[in-house]
């Protein structure tokens, strides 16, 4: 294996001086490695690595969060969700600040035990994230849910939103680093649409800095040679066909549905909802939840950051009113959010 120093030299040799190249990562953990390893500081100035919609907490719609806050204020309900979701700001506050009955969980299994311990209550699991977190939720559905456990699904499909970004010519993406964890579920082959339909190289990478540098080399080599392929430098974890069992149970319990993305809006067929056969556990049905129109947070540019149209440092609130302690927008909340990561690592 080559040293990081050698890998960086190769990257420099692959980037023509006159050409601007923009590569997007769509995974909060990738952005974390890139920022904490200082990868941007050693790349050629005309090679941009931009964070895209890779943080599951950041893209969760305001509508779903407000519905979750309202549910936690229903005296018959205990709302359970992942820790970061408790702090995401909306115009109606956050679950932690403005909700009443809520519990943080780290695994969907805990939702089952909380439901069993509280048979007189309805327990609503606010289940969010991409394919990586959908699989464990499908796994508890497969085990069978207690009668008093309901799923508020805000699950999203990574490839669909990436296609939307590709079609937006104002972003002009030259290549993608495909998310490692999501790829473990959907498989490296799931990204073939990008080279085949749009002529854009895409490479699955892992989370070590050297592995990401290898991914960049693969993308840059394809660009130099005028090729576009779906590559994989994370073969120890990601198989071409992915995890067939996980795909099977996701497909068994969930159907593709239109969903709202924070800062992006309504995107057809980009989310997952429980299939009609399991409507008995669907919180949207049980509590007759209605979509709420999103309101922009004054001054916050999280929408553009999620779309890869702006860097966190371009926001007027960044490091002034907005910090991990006082997040104004969703990207500052989670450790995987671009603004949060940049706050902790950028000198800008």
């Amino acid at each position: 294996m080559k040293s990081s120093e050698q890998l960086i030299k190769i990257i420099h040799s692959l980037v023509p001086a006159e050409k601007k190249i923009k590569i997007m990562n769509v995974c909060g953990s990738h952005e974390h490695t890139i920022a904490f390893s200082g990868i941007r500081s050693i790349l050629p100035a005309n090679l941009e690595i931009i964070p895209g919609p890779g943080c599951p907490v950041c893209v969760c719609s305001e509508s779903d969060i407000i519905n979750a806050i309202n549910l936690s204020n229903n005296p018959d309900v205990i709302l359970v969700t992942y820790g970061d979701m408790l702090r995401v700001p909306t115009r109606q506050g956050s679950i932690r600040a403005d909700g009443t009955s809520y519990k943080m969980i780290t695994s969907p299994m805990e939702a089952i035990s909380i439901a069993k311990k509280n048979p007189e209550k309805s327990v609503v699991f606010f289940s969010i994230g991409f394919e990586t977190t959908t699989a464990p939720t499908a796994a508890i559905l497969q085990m069978g849910l207690p009668d008093n456990l309901f799923i508020l699904s805000s699950h999203k499909l990574t490839p669909v939103i990436m296609e939307l970004l590709v079609k937006d010519t104002t972003i002009a993406i030259d290549g993608f680093i495909a998310p490692g964890h999501v790829s473990a579920i959907v498989g490296a082959n799931a990204w073939k649409v990008f080279p085949e339909k749009y002529g854009i190289p895409i490479v699955v990478a892992g989370f070590e800095a050297e592995n990401l540098l290898m991914g960049l080399i693969e993308i840059l080599s394809q660009l130099r040679d005028g090729l576009a392929r779906a590559g994989n430098v994370y073969k120890q974890v990601v198989r071409p066909e992915g995890n067939a069992h996980a795909q099977g149970i996701i497909n068994k319990f969930f159907k593709v549905a239109d969903i709202n993305w924070r800062g992006i809006g309504h995107v057809p067929e980009s989310g997952l909802q429980l299939r009609d056969e399991y409507a008995r556990h669907n919180a949207n049905v049980e509590f007759n939840l209605q979509p709420i129109k999103e309101e922009k947070i004054p001054g916050c540019i999280c929408g553009n950051i999620i779309l890869g149209k702006a860097y966190p440092s371009a926001c007027g609130l960044f490091k002034t009113q907005c910090s991990p302690r006082t997040p104004q927008g969703p990207c500052m909340v989670s450790m995987e959010g671009a603004c949060n990561i940049w706050y902790r690592t950028s000198s800008e």
């Binding site: 904490f36 390893s37 200082g38 050693i42 800095a209 050297e210 991990p324 902790r344 950028s346």
Partner: peptide
């Protein structure tokens, strides 16, 4: 404060936020 990372990159260190 700036940290020279093991791969030769650089990032800023800030005071613990929380």
């Amino acid at each position: 404060v700036r940290l020279r990372t093991v791969i030769g990159g650089e990032r800023s260190l800030i005071m613990a936020e929380e």
